[in-house]
Design a protein around this nucleic acid. Structure first.
Lengths: 195, 195
DNA sequence: CGGGTCCGACCGATTGCTCGGTCTCGTTAT
DNA sequence: ATAACGAGACCGAGCAATCGGTCGGACCCG
């Protein structure tokens, strides 16, 4: 499974350093040399593990996918329980501000035309909307959600609320209680769509 | 007021070009030379009007402030009417995708630590939240909004929804009907907070 | 003519990335 | 057990390209 402990440890340190750098300066603003130094390597050493800066970025995104998959995706929450699960996810995110910041920076940066992360986000949003919408539709079938609810719209709204609040929270952590405001929002959605 | 038409025209073209460039590649990813060429100038010519790249950025943001001020700020909408006004603003934004994209990219980019636009966004969010919250509180006084509504939370939510939907819409315009989904959201908020 | 406007040439710094080489370590042959 | 070997991990130096910004002078309009 894990061939050499040495190489894997270096890779891991590089990924962490890349996350920190992206959180601070974005992808374009981060220098490969700085990331390498932060990970205790030289530029050439880093490039040995990740053949290019873009490869490093997709590795960071893949890591995020891996964590998310283990944490949220597989969980088969349906109906209103899925919404509560999302509130818990926000609560968890509030404890890893660095990761949230890196994700937020990348999200904005990727909107640009030729950004290497654009495709990743472009694929990710429809998938997440579909996941949440499906969970809501399951709630309709089980009778706990009113049948005339526009599940796709609600799914888009929930995701938009998560992203939007993250921006405000990262910019001004002590002025916005992201967890409380999102919980408040979810409570409103529950009230609006529950049978 | 306007000294020479020539210089003002150049300035205007540079601002437009900067907006396009930022929309495509962000602030960090945009080259001064490319912006200048797009505006029909050389780098040195651009630098004659804006002494540094950062000066150009704040000029772009100031322009945004100017437009917003004329379009939304001064209008004294209160209570539920303010929410409808925001829905109209989203409707208007949907017709200028380039501007929305530039704003979205900048928003994410500015989350970084030393970004020159960070302060601008950091000041802007509390101000906008306060504006909307004040409008809602006025609606409470006039009796059209229930008095136990958390105006600050709702204000943060409305702004977060605008920003979050913009991201999804810019990334995938044909998959997300930003105007409709936001209108749907506002309708829900109205239902939740109206007396 | 004179000041505002803009260009061409250039600078120092930094970028992502390559290349040649050194070091370490597990494997294998003896 | 030990020596020889080869693959992987990493470094130092430097590549070409690009970055934001400077400087002196040419153009043009009032």
């Amino acid at each position: 499974m894990s061939a050499s402990t040495r190489a894997d440890a270096s890779r891991e340190r590089v990924l962490q350093a890349a996350l920190r750098a992206i959180a601070s300066n974005g992808y374009r603003g981060s220098a490969l040399a700085a990331i390498a130094a932060d990970a205790g390597l030289t530029t050439a050493g880093l490039l040995h593990h990740f053949p290019s800066k873009e490869h490093l970025l997709v590795a960071v995104l893949a890591e995020r996918d891996r964590l998310d998959g283990a944490q949220f995706q597989l969980a088969g929450f349906q109906g209103l329980a899925a919404l509560d699960r999302l509130a818990e996810l926000v609560q968890h995110n509030a404890m890893v501000p660095g990761l949230v910041q890196a994700y937020t920076v990348l999200m904005g940066e990727s909107v640009g035309e030729d950004h290497p992360a654009r495709e990743w986000f472009q694929d990710r949003y429809p998938r997440r909307r579909a996941n949440i919408a499906a969970a809501l539709r399951a709630g309709i079938e089980s009778g706990e959600i009113r049948c005339e609810v526009d599940c796709d719209a609600v799914a888009a709204q929930v995701i938009a609320m998560m992203d939007g609040l993250q921006v405000q929270w990262v910019l001004n952590p002590d002025l916005v209680d992201m967890v409380a405001v999102f919980a408040n929002f979810i409570a409103g959605v529950r009230r609006a769509i529950a049978q």
